[in-house]
């Protein structure tokens, strides 16, 4: 029974929303809109579990004095301070808190975000190095085509040989496009089959162990 209800729900809702896609009427579109809103609201409650998990994870770390436990204070402090400032700052008379919240976002969180993004460029270099040690025939193809595209999008490419931008464009439009389409056919079928398996209850690992 504990498993039957969720399985029935998935089946019924799955079939309903499959049909909904083909029904343009007002009622049908309204149901769709409302469901999307409800889903956001329902999922918002899962955030409570997520935060619980994070806090618990760090509290345990501190309690058991696991390796690097003092850093957990930084996470917990960041979480508590940021959320309190942001929520309390909305109340009248507490505008100063909102100001600090805003600055914490702008000068603490956002720079770390941007720095992490910028690190990508360094990793690009090491990834390129890895690609240049092409270990197989296939990897060599990846390397050569990547090389042409990199040269093709910068002015230097045209200086070396004026046909390079053309070759780069051709690679993008012909073999790249063909591969992309071929992959998308497979992905499309894979997604559809996975959805079908969930609706029909063939794939049911999400039911967890407790409900048997």
């Amino acid at each position: 029974m504990r498993r039957q209800i969720p399985l029935m729900l998935v089946l019924v809702l799955g079939i309903f929303f499959f049909i909904q896609f083909f029904v343009p009427s007002r009622l049908s579109t309204n149901i769709y809109q409302v469901s999307l809103q409800w889903l956001i609201l329902i999922s918002a409650f899962a955030i409570v579990l997520a935060i619980g998990s994070l806090v618990n994870h760090h509290l345990l770390k501190i309690k058991r004095r696991r390796e690097h436990w003092p850093y957990s204070y930084a996470t917990l402090a960041g979480l508590v301070v940021m959320s309190l400032l942001g929520i309390l700052g909305r109340f009248p008379g507490l505008g100063l808190l909102d100001e600090i919240y805003y600055r914490l976002y702008l000068f603490v969180q956002a720079p770390m975000d941007a720095a992490m993004f910028a690190i990508l460029a360094f990793y690009m270099a090491s990834a390129s190095y890895r690609a240049f040690r092409a270990r197989s025939k296939e990897a060599l193809l990846l390397l050569v085509s990547g090389f042409f595209i990199m040269l093709g999008v910068i002015p230097l490419g045209a200086l070396i040989w004026d046909r390079i931008p053309d070759i780069a464009e051709w690679i993008m439009m012909v073999p790249n496009m063909a591969a992309k389409r071929g992959i998308l056919f497979g992905v499309g079928l894979g997604i559809t089959a996975t959805s079908l398996k969930i609706i029909l209850g063939i794939e049911r690992s999400w039911l967890g162990g407790g409900g048997k």
């Binding site: 994070l54 850093y71 957990s72 996470t75 402090a77 960041g78 940021m82 914490l104 603490v108 770390m112």
Partner: peptide
């Protein structure tokens, strides 16, 4: 660690 905490906050 600070990044994790702040971003969840």
């Amino acid at each position: 660690h600070l990044f994790t905490g702040l971003s969840v906050g």
